[in-house]
Amino acid sequence: MKKIKFVVMFVAAVTLTAFTFVDSNKGYEIGDVATDFKLKNVNNKMVSLKDLGETKGYIVIFTCNHCPYAVAYEDRIIELNKKYKSLGYPVIAINPNNPEKQKEDSFEKMQLRAREKGFDFPYLLDEGQKIYPQYGATKTPHVYVLQNTDQGTIVQYIGAIDDNYSDADAVTEKYVENAVDALLNSEEIKVKTTKAIGCSIKV
């Protein structure tokens, strides 16, 4: 009987350790080098960071169709691309959700949404959900500002787009804009991480 208890306790300890190890892997932190990826765009073409040509960096946004937080930010995401693409920081939107769990986030619905809203930036499907865990994204939307340097593509900001998802006119802190503006002016980013507010990623 004691032997059985010992085996159960040992297995439980190993299992707990494994879960703790997995949970501790939270993706990128500020200063990390982000690796490239290749994902399918809504135009059915595969897109990677290097495919976007000569850039100073990227505004990578994990977002989706169905989440009310993501929907509330759609126009602001469009404006971010309009403002910063020509300055070297284009938007790259990635849908991290499993379409089997959330039908509104299927590739076909992504294509429809991109046409309806006139997205002029890549809207990519994280098929197999392989990329968002590398970044450590947990919400939609969740933003990563990346800067191209001699050391690689460095993560410089992680978090929310701004401080008021429900009312764009009531925003007092534009976190992403402030971060990109600082990089463009070769200045230190004052707020490098914020809490992403949105829907949990559907796995």
Rank of each mutant, 00 (worst) to 15 (best):
P133M: 15
F19M: 13
K101A: 12
G27D: 09
T149D: 11
D120I: 10
I78D: 05
S86T: 12
I158Y: 11
E100K: 09
E100Q: 09
K139L: 09
Y132D: 13
Q147N: 13
M110Q: 11
I131P: 07
K101S: 12
Q111Y: 06
F62S: 01
E100L: 05
I30F: 08
M1W: 15
Y157K: 06
E104G: 11
T15L: 15
F121Y: 15
P90I: 12
M9I: 12
D36E: 08
L16W: 14
F62E: 01
K139S: 07
K56Q: 04
V180L: 07
E54T: 14
A70E: 03
K85G: 06
N148G: 06
I4E: 14
I77Q: 05
Y58A: 00
A196K: 02
K103T: 13
A160V: 05
I197R: 08
K50Q: 13
V180M: 07
Y28R: 01
A72V: 00
H142E: 11
E187F: 01
E108R: 10
T55W: 00
H66R: 11
S166L: 08
D36W: 04
N43Y: 05
T63Y: 01
V155L: 15
D51H: 04
R115G: 04
A168S: 11
R113F: 06
A34C: 04
P99D: 15
A182R: 02
E108H: 04
L184H: 07
P68A: 08
T149W: 14
K50V: 12
Y144I: 02
I158T: 10
I30P: 03
T20K: 08
D32H: 09
V42A: 03
A170W: 00
V14K: 12
K45N: 13
P141Y: 14
D75Q: 11
L184K: 08
L184Q: 11
K5P: 00
K40A: 12
P99S: 15
N148P: 09
I92E: 07
A70P: 05
I94L: 03
L146F: 09
D75P: 00
G53A: 06
Q129T: 10
I197H: 09
A179I: 01
S200Y: 08
I78M: 11
K174D: 10
Y157G: 02
C64G: 00
Q111L: 07
V11G: 00
S48W: 03
A72K: 02
T172P: 01
E79G: 03
C64M: 02
I61L: 05
Q111K: 15
K202C: 07
M9L: 15
N178W: 04
I94H: 01
S166W: 07
I61H: 02
D32L: 09
V143W: 13
A168N: 07
N98H: 08
D163S: 04
A170T: 01
S166N: 11
I61V: 14
A137R: 10
H66W: 03
G152R: 10
N25K: 15
